[in-house]
Every structure is written in structure tokens, then in C-alpha cells.
Design a binder for these strands. Sequence first.
DNA 1: ATGAAAGCGCTAACAC
DNA 2: GTGTTAGCGCTTTCAT
Lengths: 331, 331
Amino acid sequence: MTIKQSITLADVATKAGVSKMTASRALRGTGDVSKANVELVRRAARDLGYVGNHLATSLSSQRSVLVGVVVPSLTNIVFAEVLSGIANALEGSGKQAVFGVSDYDPDTEYDVIRNMLSWRPAGLIVTGLEQSADTLKLLRNAEVPVVQIMDLDGDAVDACVGISHAEAGHTMASALLAEGRKRIAYIGCGLERDTRAAKRFRGFKNALIDEGIGLAGERIETGPSTIAVGRALTAQLLADQPDLDCIYYSNDDLAAGGLFHCLSANIDVPGTLRLAGFNGLDLVDSLPKGVATTRTPRREIGIAAARIILDVENGANPPRRVAYTPEIHMP
Amino acid sequence: MTIKQSITLADVATKAGVSKMTASRALRGTGDVSKANVELVRRAARDLGYVGNHLATSLSSQRSVLVGVVVPSLTNIVFAEVLSGIANALEGSGKQAVFGVSDYDPDTEYDVIRNMLSWRPAGLIVTGLEQSADTLKLLRNAEVPVVQIMDLDGDAVDACVGISHAEAGHTMASALLAEGRKRIAYIGCGLERDTRAAKRFRGFKNALIDEGIGLAGERIETGPSTIAVGRALTAQLLADQPDLDCIYYSNDDLAAGGLFHCLSANIDVPGTLRLAGFNGLDLVDSLPKGVATTRTPRREIGIAAARIILDVENGANPPRRVAYTPEIHMP
DNA sequence: ATGAAAGCGCTAACAC
DNA sequence: GTGTTAGCGCTTTCAT
């Protein structure tokens, strides 16, 4: 598409009767420009409907106003909240977030990150610590700060902000054991691509094994985690093993589905059967019967990540690792 | 890791022993370049870890690869799904979506749109037909195609894709009346900023009035629509008017909250009390008892909007109005 | 098939 | 205070 660059800074300058530089300075409020000229330029810009060209500005000034953000999914409320936190933290800084979605696919992730880099962003925020070798090389060679979010279990390219999922799984196992649960099963989806969910599962399982109890059963599927899937898998699992007293799910959506099954099947939750999810979604707080969960500080993670980028920009020396300790909620 | 100097096309060309132009052509696959040189340039680019500069490319070629998208909220799954549709439709076209969030605030919306325009996008997709006068002026003066999504009830700047919310409200009213409901109330949140929800409410109310029944009660609050709020408002409304046989909500989240209240309060749904929401979220399909809803084609709207931008780009003559008819789901 | 020159719109770095 | 000059990295255009 050809851009009809109708009005440029030169047009504004001409109309105001000054040079391009004076117009530029007046519009940006930098340097010394006489009040009279500032007024003239502003009026000319407004009258002409002038909209600056960020492409030219960025190229010329060699400084970027973009912060690239790569998340695996947009239709997962968790990432939407992270983005929201990032957008908020960036507000007023003059920086703007650009989002890319990897669809949990390493090749797509590589393409998306490469594409972001070609916009010469001031920084990059990417989800997780597991990237392909090619992607890692790209990130290491990029001369921009890279913040990896959501996870702490592994090595960061530059900096990371998040929680330990292995620990989260372990902590939930302890809490369930402390509640007296003995026959504990696991239901998870998409572990092959959601490495953080897989880490939670491992931490959870190991904690049980350490206590000499072990996992009483499991149902692991590929594909997305939805309420409907959680409901179906719970029904299946309980058909096989009706004597379970606890199910840990890879996330809250599955757990909510599990609860809906129990409501229909008249199973007492949490009395007979304790359900536990992960994320601490609003949904869980409103469910008619308590489902345990681990609350994760999504907005805070987004904000902290954005701050790191801004700090680097300002020459500050931000932390290379920001660890949050998620809180267990067990109603 | 050594911090590398930014590698430009000139570096690649030098390393490959050709001119910048040959390198440029080889990398883009345009014009005639000898096989040998293509290979040399590709190898040089890969060895150097060259990442092109979109800022320079766009500025120089006067063509944009960006499509600006403005939504009121990111933490609302509905808009996340629209974005997802847009991103999908743009895949393989060489275009990339850039998102902006208005937070339902007209001034923020103006700023966001202005900011998007300064990136010289190939097109703009904005939510809704109601913008401030300043914003409309900006959109009309912008020489890019503008697609307004989600709503059809009003005048579009260029083109619009969505559903009629007035009609959706009307249709739901008819369906509830057809089911034999007589004492029908309404619960809504954030109507002051969500003009589409307000249009549904008006359509709904008018339909009831036309039938000589009228609204038996209403509870309208400012602020966000959450499951928790829906639960609380339903409890309040039913405390005042226990004889209602139907509640229409401004959306599914509120309706789900209403159902959770009813489950706790042992109210038979949908027998004694029919609940109805709007959007057709996955949540509703999985709820233990049926909640009526209007399914909206979010992804389709996103896809259609993106297609319009692409069509304009290709010189085609896309429709100026794409209307979807939402389907009522009444379990 | 390849290259040199001329910008795209803007701003940093100097003049004056 | 204001203007001039010289790019930013790339692609267009027009040579060869």
C-alpha cells in the first residue's frame, strides 16, 4: 500500500513560516524556540491535521519507542493480564508495546521475535525460558535488553521475572498433604508445549514421591485446557478411580470443569474430593464451591518486566532476576 | 557475549562482495540476481546474523506492513478472540497487527489511534462506531482504510463488520417471551462506556414494552462486568424481587455469576428462573445448568475486518458493511 | 544482472 | 533562537 504522506513536517514548517528544525523543536518541546513560533507551528500542525511519522523519527534519532512482547497465546486470560500490566507500566514513558503471538510453536516464536527485532525495539519481553537454539542465538545477538517472563526455573538470556513453577507444584502438593489427602491424582493438558505446566507437574509429583505417597492416578492429554475438557477428563478419571480424594489440575480452567462435573455427579467438594488448579483466576473465586488454586501475580510480572526495559534505557542497573512467591488459596 | 554493532545491509553486501542493491534484491527475491550471488548474499546474511530494519524499509519503500488495531480492553476474552482472528487472517500476507488498548476511554482512544497513525499503518481496525468528534476527524483524514468492528448500529467512517446489538437485545427478548417468561429483569454493568451493551439493553427493553410486558426490574451499575459482580447483583435483585422468572444480563460473565448465586441459593435454573447472557463464551457451555446466551462470531469478525484491509491493499473492492446474525443458544 | 545516485521524513550536530 | 548540513538504512529509479 502506498502511503499518501500528505502532510509532512516540511508542510507544517512552510505554513508556519519557519524551518523544518524549528517546527520539529516546537512540536517536541525540545531546545529553545520562541513562544511566538511555538504557537505558529502548533497552529499550523493542527490546521493541517499533521500526524508525525514514527518511522522517520525512529530511524533518524536511532532510538526506539517500541517494546516487543511475545506471548504464546492471546486467548488465555493469563497472558492478556500480563500484557495489560506491561501496557500500564509503559504508559507515560513514551514507549509502546507491540505484541506477537507464538501459538506455543518454537518456529513461529522464532519468526515473531525476528520480526520484532526488525523494528529495532528498545527491549524484548518473551514468555518462558525455553526457546529453540536459533531463537536463543537471535536473542543473545540482539543488542536490546531481553526479559523472559513467567518462569524462573532455568537460565535467562538477560533477565527474568516470574515464579518457580517447580516450587509451585511442590508447594501445592504439601498443602494438599497437610489437608490430609491421600489418594491424589493429576489431570493436565498441553504439557508438551506448556513447559511451565510440565514443571509444576514434575514438582508436584516429586513432592508426593518424597512423602512416600506417589501419584494415585493421572490423565494427561495433548491439546488445549478448557473448562469442557476438564469436565470430561474428570468424569473419565473418576469412572476409573472413584476412590480418589484429590485431583490436581494443570490450571484453573480444567479445575473449574472438574467442579462442574462434581456438581452434576453430586460429589461433595471439597469434602469427599478436593480439587486444585493453578493461576488464581477470577472464575475460581466465584465458583459455588471452593477449588484450591495458586494465585500468580500476572499484572505484577508484566509491570516488573516493563520496568526492567525502562531502567536499562535510563542507564539504571535493574535486577536480573525478579522472583515472586505465589500464594496458595484453599477455600 | 560480545555486544555486536548493528549489522546493516551494507555489511552484508560488503561481506558478499556485491553492492547494497544486489544484496537487497537477493534477500527479497525481487529482480534478477544470479544464483551465485543470491547464495553468497544469503550466506553472508546468515553468518552475520543480519536482521533487516523495518523502519528503514517502510520509510524508503513508502509501504507499510502494519495494521493498527484498537480495542477497549485486552483482559476481556471477547476482544482477545477478535485479535486472534485478525492475527490469523493477516498471517502470510506480510502484514502485522499492532494492538492498542483504549480502556474504554475516548481520550485514550484518540491518543492511541493518533499514535498508530504515526506508524503509517496499511489500515486501521477500531472497535465500535462511537468515537469522539476529534477521533472521527482523525480517522476521516487518515488516508488509510478504517474498519469499525463489533457494531453495525450507526454510521461507519469507511467500513464496518459486526452485529446489530439493538437487534440482538430484541431477539433475546422475543425468545424469552416465547419461552413463557413474564417477570423479566435486567442486570448490567458499565453501560456508560460499553455502548454496545447499552444498545442491547435498549433493544431488549423496547421489545418488552412493545409486547406490553415491560421490564419487571433492573440493576445497573458502573464498573466492570465480572462473575463476582454478577453474583452479588443477582443476590441483591432477587432479595428485592424474589418473584422474577427471568434475568437478562449485559454479558455472560454476569450471567455466570448469577447462576452461581442460584446454585448456592437453591434456585432452580432454568425452571424457576431463566438466566440469559450475551457472547456465547466457552464458560457458558460448560456451566452445570443452562444459561441462555447469544453467540457472537468474534473470530469471524476479526478475520473479515482484516480481509477488508488486505482487499483494499490489493485494489479489490471489499464490502463496506459485513453483517453477522448472532444465534441464540437456549439450553 | 548489477550498480550509482537520489531520496523516504525526520533529527543530531553544528553553525550563525 | 534559528537554520544548515548530513545522515539514519533501506529501496526506487535509472543507468550500464
